[in-house]
Design a protein around this nucleic acid. Sequence first.
DNA 1: ATGACCCGCTTTTTT
DNA 2: AGCGGGTCAT
Length: 756
Amino acid sequence: MTEALNPGQKKAVTSHRGPMAVIAGPGSGKTRVMTHRIADLVSAGVSPGSILAITFTNKAADEMLRRTIALLGPGRGALFPTSGFLGPSSLDLDEGTPVLRTFHSFCARLLRRHLHRIEPYSGRFSIYDTADQQQLIGTILKELKLDRTSFPPRATLSRISHWKNHMTSPEQASEESTTFREKELARIFFRYQELLEERDAADFDDLLILVVRLLREHPDVLERLRARFEYVMIDEFQDTNRPQYLMAKLLAEEHRNLCVTGDPDQSIYSWRGASPDNFLRFREDFPEHIVITLDQNYRSTPQILEVAGRLAGSEFGERKLFTDNPDGAEVRVQQLRDERAEAAQIADHIESWQEEGCAASEIAILYRVNSLSRVFEEEFVRRRILYSVVGGMSFYERKEVKDILAYLRVARSTRDDVALQRIINVPARGIGKVSIERFEDAARDAGRSLGEHLRCLDGHDEIRGKAKKGLAQLRDVIETLSENVGAPLSAQVAVAIEASGYLSHLERSEPESWQERERNLEELVAAATETQEILSSVAARAQNDPEYEEIDPMSLFLERIALVTDAEMRTEEKGQVSLMTLHAAKGLEFDRVIIAGVEESLIPHSRHGEAAGVEEERRLLYVGVTRAREQLLMTHASWRRRFQEREPRIPSSFLVELEGTSIVFERDQALVKSSSTWGQTNWHRSDPGDDEDDGLHPGCWIRHEILGRGVIVRAQGHGASKRISVRFEECGEKQLVVGYAPVTPISPPDEEWEPC
DNA sequence: ATGACCCGCTTTTTT
DNA sequence: AGCGGGTCAT
Ligand SMILES: Nc1ncnc2c1ncn2[C@@H]1O[C@H](COP(=O)(O)OP(=O)(O)OP(=O)(O)O)[C@@H](O)[C@H]1O
């Protein structure tokens, strides 16, 4: 198998030693460089096992491994089996396989082996996901007597995560805090970290931070890893954070073979502590590095790139892209009446594209927030369009699945109190709020975890009667599960469902949906079986490796569930349209892309983080636009249902900036009617020079086709992109873009209508 | 003291 | 819609 490389790519692929940064725009072949470079290293005789390649998602890792094997050809590729996430469990061994993983999965695997060296953790540490974290915060708020309205768990966690991603310790956070609120947050942070340690648990941020600590505090581990991974590569470098960079630096600063690829213009995860400033740090720490820029786009038509370029504007995109690709269809922007009309229109497009012969798997619908997927799903089900939603509410986030997983976690570790709290009275065993509180207090006073305290239940009697019986019952269930830890994974899962009496609980408490939920549990058993099979085959292959060290299967099973989102596990079936957020679309490409809900307050989102601001929103749309190969369509609705209300919507301000490109703007027919200020002409009247009096000044009255009558309170800008704030009689103040909003100046209403 | 039931708030993006 | 927090019947 061979694939073309341009001179820049070739240089990047064949420069094996020394630091290198490949900085290039979308579709310029960065990912292709990564795969070819791995293959080239191996062809040059480098041991595959000495290559560490970090990708942004697990899916990208699998894909890269697959492509590398294909490049090497059947003889060579067979050298390293496709083991994916569950692959060889001990990273220090198995020289035959390159390690292709995300930072998080790489770290988790490393910590399984080495975390016992950091007090007070063990190699069986639990990984806490967002739900676990939130539960922990809930516990802490109760303990510190803070209320959840002033410290919403979500926001609290994001503050804590921000500190952690900047490697700020709770002590430092407390010192730096000036306001009362910040100080309280720092207190929560302190306790949060304390409890994680007590519970032998790591959250996602800890996985990274603990590895940095491990490498700093244990030189022998660092030495071994440096010797093992002689070539380090990182993809999507613009979206790495502090701990990730430190880790890369620690691994590579001696041999200096660090290759990073990325595109600052596609940096969209600053809210997670990521920053393209890592490129600057790289330049300082590896001053002898070479920079390779690629500026030819192989993916998209000139029409799509024109839109991308305009979106980038002068803000970014100094790396101008050019393409030799032939002209394609015009980029279109469609306005629809409401979200249902939008979904119907999109379904129409998909049907006609499929008739043209476009494969469903080459079509993607992208949106800013997951909640938008629902209306599409409903429409697609009705129209029998096959689709698959990437992300959103995943299988492993279902309540029933999380409950059973909690049983498995409790059986594995007496320190995992979040898991125990989750199932202490599920199914109901007569242990109520008050009993739980007493039990927790007693455990804390005794200096024990809940799990330990439950074990020696008979030794104390702060709880009696029904609740005590319930606790004893729970203890016995956990006992049964613990005795089973050696059994095959699927058997362990089955026993958890069985011993807990979960099925009858479901039937009792979920009269509507118990059947579906039961099916989910069956699927969980099946997932365990599958994991077991993969692990057995990995173990079989490693048999002649005397140093092969097996990590317990349940740890790996739970780890995979925590770190590999279910979208990534789902085997991609052909013939399905993909639905996902703009974030999830990063790094992917499709023949035809529809970006839905391109409306103000959605993109740019009304609650974008303050640090990165609207510019990150702009980059996000830029990422979405540049996913398309042949055809791009953006839609926006004039009305959108949110919660129970129907809200009027105005088009994204980013669309206004796209006037004057080859984009075709189309309005919903039902809205066109006869309004004189609304028409094609508006689209081309953005020149501030020929500003005629449009009758739209503060104090003037207007009529909006949908919103009714209102008075202008503010006006900004000129021509079609002029923005006005209008106080409507019916629905309060709204912002409108003159070029989009169907507004007509009217004379002020008669005085007699005014209240006197 | 427990648990069934109702109400109000919430929804940005994710490893 | 889904969860925590409240109320009320057992
Ligand atoms: N030298 C080349 N000749 C022809 N096609 C190429 C070349 N290099 C890359 N491509 C193709 O261009 C497309 C984009 O490449 P790739 O995904 O590697 O880009 P990228 O830089 O990683 O993009 P992004 O930053 O948007 O994720 C792919 O379909 C790839 O096969």
